[in-house]
């Protein structure tokens, strides 16, 4: 578990980070909390020539409001996301999901941006970003651009980021109205990765479900939205039977992996059960 040799820089600004990435070429990599990248290096699954560490770039850290949006710096650590009052108020689903990530040690190093940029379909936060319709802001040689979460995750560990782009912040629309949220993570041990996870946000109106947003963790090579469930729930009555019927569509159109922690049929089944539970909780039943 000894990584191969690499060069290391820790620039003070995003512009310098981008410049370093351009200089470093294809083999340069951004280092955030290192909780995914360092294990990869230690297992010698990757041999970057240069690591560009973002830890000295203060502007990448912290949570602020910008009108109807909540803006979370890419380098904000999971632990800070979880305890942030603005996140709790406007994006409680994110706080809830982030609290299920690994253990306290990992949560005090790993970052929100790193979790998204790593794009592990078993990661808990990509599904939340997709469910909440996040916009991911990246900066590269040509300046900043905004990428919708749905377009950001392209494949297993693959994102829309170019090698010389840095993810700088994540913009989440504040949830307006009576929203309830729940993240149902199913894993074998408290610290293990999700076999399946379901992120649900449900808006209640007059006893009915006005709107539901559901993101699925580990039900394909990217996080996906359970569109069929969302459609079935929109305007439906907030009752156990209705929810169960809608949740039965949770695996529709997914391509769940089959691996050591579960066959795809098992995952499909879990997606249905967990969606029912998450929506039930989020709907306040």
């Amino acid at each position: 578990m000894i990584p191969a040799q690499f060069d290391y820089v820790a620039p003070g600004t995003v512009a310098d980070a981008v410049a370093a990435l351009i200089d470093g070429g294809e083999d340069a990599k951004v280092l955030a909390g290192g909780q995914s990248l360092i294990p990869v290096l230690r297992l010698r699954l990757s041999y970057p020539s240069l690591l560009v560490d973002l830890r000295k770039i203060d502007e990448l850290r912290g949570v602020r409001e910008d009108g109807a949006e909540l803006v979370i710096g890419a380098m904000t650590r999971h632990a800070d996301v979880i305890s942030d009052p603005l996140v709790r108020q406007h994006a409680a689903l994110l706080a809830e999901a982030a609290a299920t990530v690994a253990d306290p040690a990992v949560r005090h190093r790993g970052t929100f941006g790193g979790s998204l940029a790593h794009a592990d379909p078993a990661g808990d936060l990509p599904a939340v970003a997709v469910a909440l319709g996040a916009q991911l802001v990246a900066e590269g040689p040509g300046g900043r651009r905004s990428i919708a979460a749905a377009d950001f995750f392209q494949d297993y560990l693959q994102t829309a980021l170019a090698p010389d782009e840095v993810l700088v912040e994540v913009r989440l629309p504040k949830l307006q109205g009576r929203w309830g949220v729940a993240y149902e993570k199913f894993s074998r041990t408290a610290q293990a990765w999700a076999i399946v996870g379901v992120a649900a946000a449900v808006r209640r109106d007059n006893g009915a479900i006005a709107e539901a947003r559901i993101g699925l963790t580990n039900m394909g090579s990217t996080p996906v939205r359970a569109g069929a469930v969302e459609a079935a729930l929109a305007g439906a009555s907030a009752e156990a039977g209705t929810i169960a019927e809608a949740a039965a569509h949770a695996a529709d159109g997914t391509h769940a992996p089959s691996d050591l922690s579960g066959g795809s049929d098992y995952r499909e089944h879990l997606a249905r059960v967990l969606t029912r539970r998450a929506v039930t909780t989020a709907a306040g039943l």
């Binding site: 253990d103 041990t189 408290a190 610290q191 293990a192 050591l260 922690s261």
Partner: peptide
């Protein structure tokens, strides 16, 4: 050995 790291070879902790 496909359970070659602790990500795949699961050990419980106090939390479990």
């Amino acid at each position: 050995l496909v359970t070659g790291t602790m990500a795949d070879y699961l050990l419980p902790t106090a939390a479990d």
